[in-house]
Nucleic acid binder design. Structure first.
Length: 1148
RNA sequence: GGGCUUGUAGCUCAGGUGGUUAGAGCGCUACACUGAUAAUGUAGAGGUCCGUGGUUCGAGUCCACGCAGGCCCA
């Protein structure tokens, strides 16, 4: 066989060729089917949305996924990877609206819901081709032939069954949340709509600092001394209309508050108020501090006298009761029996503005709602005509009838008509409330305040924060279990799990499932105002209930017609579970009341979080597959999914199956541009993945992304980095392979799996690189197992570039190119050992790298083993597999690991480096042989380790001999350094003194210390006993020699150049020139030559003749003659001070 | 505003449990090598370890407070 040797290599072409091979041979399919019956490793694919083109960050995310699936396959697991597509949701709707040039307003008017949704369905898969193309080109192995698609009926049916399970467990309920709501438009606004430009406008609102009268002050520890005072808590609001809904006051636990004795600025009655200490200056002037209270009535009423009575923390105020400020509606007790009108603690309170005490109305503020709910504080609600609980402001933005003088008034002036507002007598409701409170002595300050406030983009009128109906999953009920099970998940990085995700779970609120939109999974709940409610959990159930309606007499003709039409569709299998079709279904309750579907859609995150079940149409089908592949062993997505997919997977899984959904998760960082900015199409700094892969090929792209930064760190993507990886790593590896192939072919070497050269017959270098290789396998395995591909990749790269190429190959070149034994005599054991070692290293590297660089790994594996395939199949040996991705991970041969040898080689590397640096400093080129180096050794072990690799050092640095200088020789000069690590615990504060004393030690002191193992020093504080282990003694100098040292290792070099050495150096130079000439003349590596050199210099000729045997062998010259004159036929070459005139010719 | 996260050479990154003289690769400069050659070797220059305090005999490392970037949430 021949190994393929290459002139040069196109990495994109490697990608294309390997891809073609994978496709033709169905290698991906084989990698799964081959492992049938093996233990499974389950991976869940987080479904991307195909309504946009894929970006370079998708290459990153998918490379991570791919790496561990491939790695686990190598480890013998069966890894099925079902692809999926996320298809529902707002982004799709927005894109369709943009394409059609419509807004949500138009839906149902200029376009029917059916048409609209049809359009969404088409749009969402618009970029599927691009995605599939990228998936293939980047080498992401995932099954795209049978992906799950979230809009499919089977998928939705699974979702319904999960929802029904939640419903049956009482974990699905209808409640409300505070959302931006536009009374003028009669609709809630999404956060997307609220983020549109122009939404926030500066408005001047009437603001009130209201005074809440403390009840039973005497029984409060902080107020008991001042119980005779009229104590009132101050709270500021920019929305006075919410004051009738106040049920609590929120303070910050750690904030300092004060009780200030003063007067009511409007009624001038004495009063004591509570506010944050930091804000006292905002309400009281220095002038009034501790001023004359008695003469206040007579004095200028503009300056309030005041004095601080006491100070306390917010925490101490918790639970204080106060009188209702505007008692129009008396609230019920809270769910836990707690009463309204008390002080509670909240983390959002600041002393930036206001009074440091927040007026809290649970129905009209999101924070308010949250903090009230957390503290069990009830909200003020009234019942409408149908008996339903509603807030005290109706959906048009008017106070309800219960609110005394304000009944029927709009809460915001902008809601009145222009004429109404123009009336000179018109006063906004906020102003009327302010007047009333002033009169009642309940206002401390009223003023206009300008601030930004959100407005409805459609009507341009202010929005209200308003309670809107929503369906919730009661995640809070399972909080403890969610937290507990999370602790069993292996998060990479750990901090995302315990920090970001853990905190999120700790502060869990119920999952708001409702979305008021069109393109999504419909909520399968039918209900009416009579208290009837039905949750549908399957197509069968829906059929059953539809059938019931057909025979009932409660439907109108039209309703009955719709129902029977839909039923017929269900029966034929040609049905659509989306809006508007399901909306027309009208069911009948047991009591004979009609029930209509709740119009909401569910949060798309439920779609994706339910993929473990819905991808298999569980529980309706594939129960067995589901049971085997749940929970997932591994998932990976961006860290931005923490509260998205990671949470929804976890929540559904814990709530319904009391299990984690995934055992290991890698949350990946962002891909930024090279300057660290977020990539965006708008900024034009987005990187096109197709272009990148087209230019550099998939492997360098993947390798760069993986090895440059750990997956969870943000990656600053610099295209030049890919080029660097390509040159440095892939280039070196390619050269190494090519080197192997070149000489293996020349020698006709073929790897034989059935027999190998015994370790005893291998050189130090062979054994060393094999030891390194096994250590590498060990370390790389550990990193892959720890889900750290970055460290795995860096280890492989270091091995290839530093150890294999730059040391093993470089030092072994001669073994490979030395002519083999005479023709026909076969290869020497030494050569076989060299080839075998190198082949083994390369093929192992091809496998170790294959998860990260699947194409190049494959290319390398195939080049090394294709010719051995048939034999291997016959022998059932490891190379029987067509693809590296089908092989089993290399076993670590522990007995080949020789740490002592690895240490020796490290010494060889650093000694060589030191000698090189001395040569360099003295301008002694490596081709000039030198006689010896001197290495001081303080212990026998080091000497033995160096001797083990002595010949390697000598060859590498071109020196004849190495001599060891022992401690007792007396020529070594030693240096002593304190070992702080051991001295620290012993001497602590005396360290400086000790360190100085040690540094001052003399040669004989060091000797004494070495001899006795300890020494007593006299410091300022008396005797200090120092043990040998407390110091580090290194040989630093050999007087009279040229030395270099590093890391406690010192090398001295004899730079005397004798005549013989000089001649040898000339001979070496000569060889070098001849080799160049051979090459320039285009001779073949195996050509034998004849050399004629013109005799022009005595020293030169002498040097050549003295070393003729060496020269002839090196340059493969069968003749080497020195002739008097070459008659002008010579080639002239400069060589230091000589001018060579020589002629070389091939001998036939 | 809150949670999490990052900050070390021009660039990209390493730097268990604190140990005094902070490393690598790329890039740059110089030299060498020239049968792996669009390679390779050696050396050099290059640092306020984001800042300020603190703990400690000793802080890139631990603590506190800031600054800057990022993500998520409000």
């Amino acid at each position: 066989m021949k190994y393929n040797a290459y002139k040069n290599l196109s990495y994109p072409q490697v990608g294309d060729e390997v891809l073609k091979f994978w496709k033709e041979q169905q290698i991906f399919e084989a990698s799964v089917s081959l492992r049938e019956g093996s233990p499974g490793f389950t991976f869940f694919e987080g479904p991307p949305s195909a309504n946009g083109a894929p970006g370079i960050h998708h290459v990153m995310a998918r490379t991570i996924k791919d790496i561990f699936c491939r790695y686990k396959t190598l480890q013998g697991f069966q890894v099925k990877r079902k692809g999926g597509w996320d298809t529902h949701g707002l982004p799709v709707e927005l894109q369709v609206e943009k394409e059609l040039g419509i807004t949500k307003e138009d839906i149902g008017k200029t376009i029917s819901v059916a048409e609209y949704n049809e359009r969404c369905k088409q749009t969402v898969m618009k970029f599927t081709d691009q995605w599939n193309d990228l998936t293939e080109k980047m080498g992401y192995w995932v099954d795209l032939d049978d992906p799950y698609i979230t809009y499919k009926s089977d998928y939705i049916e699974s979702l319904w069954s999960l929802l029904k399970k939640l419903y049956d467990k009482g974990l699905l309920y209808k409640g409300y949340t505070i959302q931006p709501y536009s009374p003028a438009a009669g609709t809630g606004l999404s956060s997307h709509e609220l983020n549109m430009p122009g939404t926030y406008q500066d408005v001047k609102d009437t603001t009130i600092v209201a005074m809440f009268k403390v009840k039973e002050a005497a029984s409060q520890a902080i107020f008991s001394d001042y119980a005779q005072e009229d104590i009132r808590i101050l709270a500021w609001t920019t929305t006075p209309w919410t004051l009738p809904a106040n049920t609590a006051l929120t303070v910050g636990a750690g904030i300092n508050y004060v009780l200030v004795k003063t007067f009511n600025p409007y009624t001038h009655s004495p009063v004591s108020v509570v506010l944050a200490k930091d804000l006292v200056g905002k309400y009281f002037s220095e002038k009034g501090k501790d001023a004359d209270f008695d003469n206040y009535q007579a004095s200028d009423k503009k300056v309030l006298p005041w004095t601080i009575l006491s100070e306390f923390k917010g925490k101490q105020m918790e639970g204080i009761r106060y009188e209702q400020l505007m008692p129009y509606v008396i609230p019920d007790k809270g769910p836990t029996g707690k009463e309204a009108f008390q002080v509670i603690l909240g983390d959002f309170v600041t002393t930036e503005d206001g009074t440091g005490i927040v007026h809290t109305s649970p129905t009209f503020g999101a924070d308010d709602f949250r903090v009230a709910q957390a503290n069990g504080i009830p909200a003020i609600m009234v019942r409408d005509e149908s008996g339903k609980e509603v807030p005290i402001v109706d959906r048009q933005g008017r106070f309800v009838k219960e609110i005394g003088p304000y009944a029927g008034r709009f809460v915001k002036p902008e809601y009145y008509s222009a004429e109404d507002q123009a009336d000179p007598a018109f006063k906004p409701t906020d102003v009327l409330i302010a007047i009333q409170l002033k009169e009642e002595g309940k206002a401390f300050r009223v003023e206009k305040y300008e601030h930004p406030y959100p407005h409805c983009w459609r009507t341009d009128k202010p929005v209200l924060y308003y309670p809107l109906d929503s369906w919730f999953i009661k995640t809070t009920a399972m909080k403890d279990r969610l937290v507990e099970l999370n602790k069993s998940i292996n998060w990479k990085p750990e901090s995302t799990g315990s920090g970001r995700f853990g905190n999120w779970l700790e502060n869990l609120v119920d999952w708001n499932l409702s979305r008021s939109r069109y393109w999504g999974t419909p909520l399968p709940i039918w209900r009416n105002d009579h208290g009837d409610e039905l949750c549908i959990g399957s197509i069968e159930e829906l059929k059953h209930h539809l059938e019931e309606t057909i025979v009932s007499e409660h439907l109108t003709r039209e309703q009955a017609l719709h129902n029977s039409e839909y039923l017929a569709k269900l029966q034929s299998g040609e049905f659509d579970l989306h809006r508007p079709y399901v909306d027309t279904i009208c069911l009948v309750s047991k009591n004979g009341h009609l029930m209509f579907r709740e119009p909401d859609l569910i949060d798309v995150w439920f779609d994706s979080g339910a993929m473990p079940y819905a991808q298999w149409h569980y529980p309706f089908e594939n129960q067995e597959i589901f049971n085997e592949s749940y929970p997932a062993d591994f998932i990976s997505e961006g860290v931005d999914q923490t509260r998205g997919w990671f949470f929804t997977l976890h929540a559904i899984s814990v709530m319904l199956f009391d299990s984690v959904a995934f055992k290991n998760v890698v949350s990946t960082g962002l891909v930024l541009d090279k300057a660290g900015n977020k990539m965006s199409k708008r900024l034009g700094n987005a990187v096109d993945p197709f272009e990148t892969i087209g230019q550099y090929g998939p492997d360098a792209t993947r390798w760069y992304m993986i090895t440059n930064a750990e997956p969870w760190d943000n990656l600053k993507f610099n295209i030049e980095g890919i080029g660097e990886v390509q040159r440095k790593f892939f280039g070196t590896l390619f050269n190494t392979y090519n080197f192997f192939a070149l000489y293996a072919n020349l020698d006709g070497y073929v790897f034989d799996e059935t027999k190998s050269v015994s370790m005893a017959k291998r050189t130090e270098l062979d054994r060393w690189i094999l030891s390194k290789l096994n250590t590498l396998i060990d370390q790389v395995t550990a990193q892959y197992e720890d889900y750290n591909p970055t460290k795995a990749g860096r280890l492989i790269q270091d091995f290839v570039t530093d150890q294999l190429s730059n040391w093993y190959i470089r030092l072994n070149r001669r073994r490979f190119w030395n002519p083999s034994q005479e023709q026909g005599a076969g290869l020497t054991d030494d050569k076989v050992a060299a080839y075998e070692t190198l082949q083994h290293c390369l093929v192992t590297v091809s496998q170790l790298m294959s998860p990260i660089a699947p194409f190049f790994g494959e290319w390398l594996y195939k080049n090394l083993t294709d010719g051995l395939r048939e034999t291997a199949k016959a022998n059932n040996s490891p190379f029987r597999f067509e693809s590296v991705h089908l092989t089993l991970f290399s076993e670590i041969k522990r007995d080949e690991i020789d740490q002592d040898l690895e240490k020796s080689m490290e010494l060889a590397q650093s000694i060589s480096s030191l000698v090189h640096s001395i040569r360099k400093g003295n301008k002694l080129k490596v081709r000039q042989p030198l006689s010896k180096i001197l290495i001081p050794v303080l212990n026998a072990d080091t000497q033995r380790q160096i001797e083990q690799v002595k010949s390697i050092i000598l060859t590498e640095v071109n020196v004849k001999d190495v001599e060891f200088v022992k401690d007792d020789s007396g020529v070594i000069k030693k240096k002593i350094k304190p070992n702080f690590k051991t001295l620290g615990p012993k001497f602590g504060p005396k360290m400086k003194e000790v360190a100085a004393a040690i540094s001052a030690l003399k040669e004989e002191d060091i000797k004494s210390l070495e001899k006795h193992g300890n020494i007593e020093l006299i410091g300022q504080s008396g005797m200090l006993e120092i043990a040998l282990s407390d110091v580090e003694i290194v040989a630093e100098d050999v007087p009279g020699w040229l030395v270099a040292s590093a890391d406690g290792l010192t090398v001295a070099l004899d730079i005397t150049v004798t005549d013989a050495l000089r001649k040898e150096g000339i001979a070496r130079d000569f060889v070098n020139r001849v080799q160049n000439l051979r090459k320039d003349s285009g001779f073949d590596v195996v050509d034998k030559i004849k050399i004629n050199l013109q005799d022009s210099d005595a020293l030169l000729s002498e040097a050549i003749m003295d070393n003729s045997a060496y020269i002839q062998q090196e340059v493969q010259a069968q003749e080497l003659n020195i002739v008097a004159d070459l008659n002008g036929e010579a080639t002239e070459i400069e060589m230091d001070e000589f001018l060579l005139k020589l002629k070389i010719e091939v001998i036939a």
